[in-house]
Design a protein around this nucleic acid. Structure first.
Lengths: 348, 348
DNA sequence: ATGAAAGCGCTAACAG
DNA sequence: CTGTTAGCGCTTTCAT
């Protein structure tokens, strides 16, 4: 069964490709093509099950109606959920999505950006892991439509991004713990931590404990290498348990760290929240199912996705006319669950 | 900054596009082009940061080096993990991946298949939800490269598929419960259940309890509508708790059902495994973290993905020469955890 | 009311 | 050793 082309339809009807193309693209009336002819074209199209070659179409139009999404790892629940939301948003605008995982690797991300450009995607949504931001700078110079999500580059002005307020979210969570009477609060963060999301979360933590005049020992702030989360978290927890003062609360910088923390505490038979309270960034459906359920700082992924796609499409449509960039900061949502213990009545 | 094309390189060097094309595709030596010229081409290519337009290339070659993946929902942990594995496998062969979610909807899946064909993907990996399999039949007739994963169509002979042995996995899990002394074992399955994976799992359950001559009351086999898992599972659990005999074990047909079961049991304050033992299809990292941890029938997603991609690429490469189809059934892995209670010593 | 022809950027047969 | 030319399937200007 051969692929049917525009030309096949035209030949079979004894008309030109032009006519068929016009009709199929809805320009039939505009060009004054007889209703009758139009109907015949449509009918034949159905009959032969004609499928336009979008590749040829895109080449001609200089537009692929495809956008590229780069995240650290699509199998990560956070990004999977985000990707799904972005997929749906894109579809609404008639765009398709190519999703790629960078594994938090600079080189891989760069080559993905390159690959996606070669595939002629109309725009890019990137949760960038880049230390070396030159790739992004180039995108900007080329006026290539893109929007950053989750993480951004403060040193590159005038770029679109959509993020949550990491600093404030972190600060507020720690503040909550302090108000609950916790004095020795640890944070398990991630390394390398050039990512703005991580840096801002760290800063929120430090500022909150400094402001409250409680223990600010850097011993309490652990950096977990990205490549060995499970083992490193376990080691850190072990270290924290030996600390001179009793640590009563931990903030996890993301869900992967949280998972490892829960696992380690289970292993060391430390009870949450009786001995240690836990709060994590990113909410997962199952944090609610754990016993005890885990308090979380939830990112409204639907809102993030909605904005990211909207901005990108806008950028694509105004290509050339150097549009004013959008920088959206979305508030997160603190969900208090059973994993937080009140050491004293919360002050009002 | 204009996009640089093959022609720009050629003009700037005073040679033809052909020559440049040959060199860049590694046919320089074959066509006896001077080393010197070749080097100059490469150098200029770098200098101008030339990025080949893959769209044009694909159109010309009739090959996009892209494959399409259709799953029910990419935000579902099972499919997210699978997609990631498939992505990696594809990359190894130099292919890119377009991932789409069908939401278990016939119409959406059909239109996704159509869309991906229009985009000229070289092949398709589908976890199909179709009741009406005609779309697949057409693919087969057209000799379009595709492989089914997770679910297949027994009524369509000679198609590639990669699945786990659902029947045996289900049978064995239930058998384990029976051997542990359970007499009233419920199963929460999903509806509509035309999917082979679900049908086979159901059959394994029924055959196991029939064979053991224990309670085979169909009341114990609940069908949960796909659209309202959480509420329906809760209702089913409530119903099961009122059953004349005491139900001591539940098999969940997939992870979503399992999550809902755990949530419902938590709500009704039923202790796992003291009052009810639980086993689920599909393993999630966090099943291990729950207290108690949940026994699971784990699908080796890496093996599934590896096979699916390998077969598909093979199919693509032997296009035309109607290749013998692969039908791979992979054994699953039963992981016993704390959620299963021994009511009596297991017989040997 | 409809068609001819050019061209999007690339590759490959064929010519020199 | 290198260039000319045709063409992948589509859209669009310009004719008629």
């Amino acid at each position: 069964m051969k692929k049917v082309r525009l030309e096949d339809i035209a030949n079979k009807m004894g008309v030109s490709k032009t006519l068929v193309s016009m009709v199929l693209n809805g320009y039939g009336d505009k060009n004054g093509i007889k209703k009758e002819t139009q109907e015949k074209v449509i009918a034949l199209t159905r009959e032969l099950d004609y499928k336009p070659n979008q590749m040829a179409r895109s080449l001609r139009l200089g537009k692929s109606n495809t956008i590229g999404l780069i995240v650290a790892d699509i199998s990560n629940a956070f990004y999977a959920k985000m990707a799904r939301n972005i997929e749906d948003e894109c579809n609404k605008y008639g765009y398709n999505l190519i999703i790629c995982s960078s594994d938090e690797k600079d080189a891989k991300e760069s080559s993905l950006i390159r690959m996606l450009k070669e595939k002629q995607v109309d725009g890019l949504i990137i949760s960038s892991t880049l230390v070396d931001n030159s790739e992004i700078v180039v995108l900007k110079q080329e006026n290539y439509p893109f929007v950053l999500v989750d993480r951004y580059f403060p040193e590159i002005p005038d770029t679109n991004f959509v993020i949550i307020d990491n600093y404030k979210s972190s600060y507020k969570a720690v503040k909550y713990l302090i108000d609950s009477g916790h004095q020795n609060i640890a944070m398990l963060s991630i390394s390398p931590s050039h990512l703005t999301s991580v840096k801002d979360r760290n800063k929120g933590y430090f500022d909150a404990i400094k402001k409250a005049n409680i223990n600010t020992d850097h011993y309490l702030h652990c950096l977990i290498p990205f490549e060995s989360i499970e083992q490193s978290v376990e080691a850190s927890i072990e270290r924290l348990l030996k600390y001179e003062k009793k640590i009563t609360a931990i903030l996890a910088v993301n869900q992967n760290i949280a998972l490892a923390i829960i696992k380690a505490l289970k292993k060391f038979k430390i009870k949450i929240p009786d001995e240690i309270s836990v709060i994590t960034f990113d909410d997962l459906p199952f944090f609610e199912l754990l016993t005890p359920s885990i308090s979380a700082i939830s990112q409204p992924l639907d809102v993030i996705s909605f904005n990211a796609v909207k901005i990108l499409i806008d950028e694509i449509n105004s290509k050339g006319s150097s549009r004013k960039k959008d920088q959206v900061v979305i508030p997160s949502h603190f969900i208090l669950r059973e994993s937080c213990k009140q050491l004293k009545t919360k002050k009002t």
